[in-house]
Write a protein that binds this DNA or RNA. Structure first.
Length: 556
RNA sequence: CGGGAUGUAGCGCAGCUUGGUAGCGCACCUCGCUUGGGACGAGGGGGUCGCACGUUCAAAUCGUGUCAUCCCGACCA
């Protein structure tokens, strides 16, 4: 321990917000170099290598082959897939000395597709699954939460190539099974949930979410306790009550001076919020779009974006709303007359008589629904009905540690990455891609396993398995002996040989999170040492020669 | 990109209002003492006060600009 390069801090760093960031920084695992960019110090690197080792074992066992692609990539490749333009500012671009445009790889679909294009010419060479473990760079608009959302992070990314959809479906299931094993071995309980495909693209995708009790999860997951349906809120679908909602107001115009919000309107009229039409104006790819939804529901912007096939979406400012001839707070159902696109959520279908803005200041109007096609752009909520079995949905927050996508020919077709089938016909590969955030997984483990004193590493990914703490110098020889025996037995052990008071050693041991602590103190007079389990606080007094078995009995 | 805040020693902070030779706690070094849950005493090392320009006899302190960091939002694997 005296030689271990680790500096624990007495206090949490002031710039840390979430528990994993606070703990890892204070316990000397990481140190920030720049916003969203961290040094992985020796303890952290040991953890990361353990996570990587588990990932490698399971990926190899699942038939994938490891390779390593360059971190720096040429623009030409990204032009082929069309993502140089689409990816946006998140793509870290740079120029070399010849003024050639390059980028730092945020993901490697382009490169791997180029590799496959050169190497896979025949259907006989497939299926194949290639993966790498490497640093990725994404210039996040707002990095935060330490390792949970860094700009540079370590990721395992795998890409599969198949001759047809059937092959892809099989590999997708194969990867899902491997992922489940990986996270289990890392000591993490995960849920596999349906997700939106985002910038990677493709038809079907799932995320692996670590479910924590805290609010540290950035994603919201809806799941059905009855049938097992689970989805990210960006994608989750649900059913509303079948009954129609109708306002009791007579169909006419009402004076509503300065009453703009749904809540105020509900109070003013003495009506429930579900008979009020909510209108929200967005700027979608630079054009205004008015989205409608039932007053008690919320718009899910990712769904809206997908429904419109859009790339960029944001709320319109009041000025922009006025510019297209609408009155903020009093937007009604006729923007189509002034040229803005309309999109209506399914929830509006169940509104028979409703209250909406009158398109003029200080007036609302009650009336009947107008006929228009609807789609799903609403956020599913807790207690909505499951579309599969009707049970009430539940909500939880999660940390996304892995995701799997069915890409199909999204990259192979535009990049002309083809093979010859049995009939000598050229076809694009059917691809899948599969990611695991290595550094995020390690941080998620801290989120899931800690207490007020520090980290409680799961045994499989702990930087070390055990620490031997001699209370005073007299106990050093016995401590040294135990340390050496454990090391020889393959249990990675640290001997706290520092000239510190026991309190300091105990605090550091708890903070760093060694799964097992062996304390050599007064009881050694009776030939006994104290054996403490970090995860559950179990503490027993045993003979030194029993320590190894005590540890083995407690790891599964 | 919008809103808010903060930059002073490795970490946590005070000093700034009212300009006058930069401080505290922890950490670090030396000595003593202490040893079952972050002891104590004495001595010591370490800072272009984010950077630039300006005002002034004099700037950590006032002004302008700039950069960085953090929080909320928008965004995102």
């Amino acid at each position: 321990m005296s030689k271990l390069f680790v500096q624990t801090l007495r206090e949490f760093p002031s710039d840390a917000e979430v528990v994993s960031h606070k703990m890892l920084a204070r316990a000397g695992f990481i140190r920030k170099l720049s916003s969203g960019i961290y040094n992985y110090l020796p303890l952290m690197w040991r953890v990361l290598r353990k996570v990587e080792a588990i990932v490698r074992e399971e990926m190899d066992a699942a038939g994938a082959q490891e390779l390593l692609m360059p971190f720096v990539q040429p623009r030409e490749l990204w032009d082929e897939s069309g993502r140089w333009e689409v990816y946006g500012k998140e793509l870290m671009r740079l120029k070399d000395r010849h003024n050639r445009e390059m980028c730092l790889g945020p993901t490697h679909e382009e490169v791997i597709t180029a590799i496959a294009r050169d190497g896979i010419k025949s259907y006989k060479q497939m299926p194949v699954n290639l993966y790498q473990i490497q640093s990725k760079f994404r210039d996040e608009v707002r990095p935060r939460y330490g390792l949970l959302r860094g700009r540079e992070f370590i990721m395992k990314d795998a890409y599969s190539f198949d001759v047809d959809q059937d092959g892809l479906d099989k590999e997708y299931d194969n990867m899902a099974a491997a992922y489940t094993r990986i996270f289990e071995r890392c000591g993490l309980a995960t849920k596999m949930v349906q997700s939106d495909s985002g910038a990677i693209g493709g038809s079907v995708s799932h995320e692996f979410m670590v479910i924590t009790d805290q609010d540290s999860g950035e994603d919201t997951v809806l799941y059905c306790p009855e049938c097992g349906y689970a989805a990210n809120s960006e994608r989750a679908v649900s059913e509303l009550e079948p009954e129609k909602t109708r306002s009791t107001l007579a169909p006419k115009e009402y004076h509503t001076p300065d009453i703009k919000s749904i809540e105020d309107l509900a109070r003013h009229f003495g009506e429930p919020t579900n008979v009020i039409l909510k209108s929200v104006v967005y700027i979608v790819d630079k054009k205004p779009v008015v989205a409608y939804i039932r007053g008690d529901r919320e718009i899910q912007e990712t769904k809206l974006k997908n429904a419109l096939g859009a790339n960029e979406i944001r709320l319109a400012s009041n000025a922009e709303i006025e510019e297209i001839g609408l009155v903020p707070g009093f937007i009604g159902v006729k923007p189509i007359e002034i040229g803005a696109q309309m999109i209506v959520d399914n929830s509006v279908e169940g509104m028979e008589i409703f209250i909406a803005g009158a398109n003029k200041k200080d007036y609302h109007v009650a009336g009947k629904i107008w006929a228009t096609p609807t789609c799903d752009i609403g956020l599913a909520k807790e207690n909505d009905s499951c579309v599969h079995c009707g049970a009430a949905l539940k909500v939880t927050s999660g940390i996304e540690v892995g995701n799997i996508f069915k890409l199909g020919t999204k990259y192979s077709a535009p990049m002309n990455a083809v093979f010859l089938d049995e009939n000598g016909k050229a076809k694009p590969y059917v691809m899948g891609c599969y990611g695991i955030g290595i550094s995020r997984t390690a941080a998620a483990a801290v989120e899931a396993h800690h207490d007020e004193f520090g980290i409680k590493w799961p045994y499989a990914i702990a930087p070390y398995h055990a620490v031997v703490v001699p209370v005073s110098a007299e106990q050093m020889p016995v401590a040294q002996e135990i340390y050496e025996k454990l090391q020889a037995a393959g249990i990675e052990t640290v001997l706290d040989d520092r000239d510190e008071r026991p309190g300091v050693k105990f605090k550091d041991a708890d903070l760093i999170g060694f799964p097992f602590r062996i304390t050599v103190g007064k009881t050694i007079a009776d030939g006994l040492v104290e054996f403490k389990v970090r995860s559950n606080g179990e503490m027993i007094t045993i003979k030194p020669e029993e320590v190894e078995n005590a540890i083995r009995a407690r790891i599964i």
